[in-house]
């Protein structure tokens, strides 16, 4: 393994380097995925462009819409006071990524660009209808996160383009989020299945106004369970309705058998964890009300 290391000191310089090296370059943020992939020989970039000298990408702005710089770490998300309320799923998902040392350096931008279907924070962002902003030689563009993730390890990012931020709107009143995860152990674990949900109830808290369900590790990308969402919207959220959403979500995901779990266990988990996450969201809305 041999490569040239670059340390651009601004977003402009980083993007210029990205444009210069194209497919032969990789941006390095926390490195918790990239370095492992390089060590295992899965990727072999000729140029590694470390972003650690680039300032301004490690901030969370939460006045109005929420904007997370690409270099915001999982630890920062975990401790962000703005995420202790309805956005709590962000904390729940960030807090179960790896161990403390990993979370201290692993970034949200890296988690998105790595495009692992088992990423933990990504389903929460998907449930928040997040968009991502990329900066490249042709300027800036903003895409929906859903459209950005195209396959395992694959995104719509163009060669040399730098993902600079992820953005989503604050939730309306009567909303909550929840994240639940299943794995073989209680920490340091890659999800066998993870589920993120967002619920917004109507003013009377009688019916579901809007629902988002995102599933991890059960398809080539993090996946919205749209049929399950539709089955909730406009409905009073009885336990039977929630369980039906779980069955629909299990039906619309496409898990595989691998060393971590079988496809049928993953479906069973989706069927179980979707209503569990929805129930948790409902409780949170109830508590907040």
């Amino acid at each position: 393994m041999s490569f040239e290391c670059h340390e651009p000191s601004s977003v402009t310089d980083a993007v210029a380097l990205g444009a210069r090296f194209g497919e032969e370059g990789r941006f390095l943020a926390g490195g918790t995925d990239l370095i492992i992939q390089m060590r295992r020989g899965k990727v072999g970039p000729r140029h590694v462009m470390s972003l650690h000298r680039v300032s301004g990408l490690d901030r969370i702005e939460a006045d109005g819409a929420v904007r997370l710089g690409a270099l915001v770490t999982h630890r920062t998300i975990e401790r962000c006071p703005a995420f202790q309320g309805p956005l709590q799923a962000l904390v729940e998902s960030a807090a179960v990524v790896g161990g403390h040392q990993i979370r201290n350096v692993a970034t949200v931008g890296g988690n998105i660009v790595n495009a692992s279907p088992a990423a933990d924070v990504v389903p929460v962002l998907l449930a928040l209808d997040a968009t991502v902003t990329c900066l490249g030689p042709d300027g800036e563009r903003t895409l929906t996160l859903d459209g950005f993730l195209t396959g395992p390890g694959q995104t719509a990012r163009r060669p040399g383009e730098l993902l600079t931020s992820v953005r989503f709107d604050q939730l309306p009143p009567g909303s909550a989020t929840a994240f639940v995860k299943a794995g073989r152990r209680k920490a340091m674990e890659i999800s066998v299945v993870c589920v993120a949900v967002r619920l917004t109830l109507d003013a009377a808290h009688a019916r579901c106004q809007e629902a988002r369900i995102a599933l991890g590790a059960v398809a080539p990308t993090t996946l919205r369970a749209r049929a399950a969402e539709r089955a909730l919207e406009g409905q009073p959220l009885t336990d039977e309705v929630l369980r039906r959403a779980g069955r629909l979500a299990a039906g619309e995901c496409g898990p595989i058998d691998d060393v971590r779990a079988s496809a049928r266990y993953r479906r069973l988990l989706v069927e179980t964890l979707v209503p569990r996450a929805l129930r948790r969201s409902l409780e949170r809305i109830g508590r907040a009300a």
Binding site: R184, R185, K186, A187, M188, E189, I190, D258, V259, R260
Partner: peptide
């Protein structure tokens, strides 16, 4: 949680990501 899993003579989990030793929380 622990098992070295073979398939067709190859170990599927030759790393500590997928060879699951318990943590203190377990």
């Amino acid at each position: 949680s622990e098992e070295i899993v073979y398939e067709g003579g190859r170990v599927l989990n030759p790393n500590l990501t997928d060879y699951k030793m318990p943590t203190t929380l377990d």
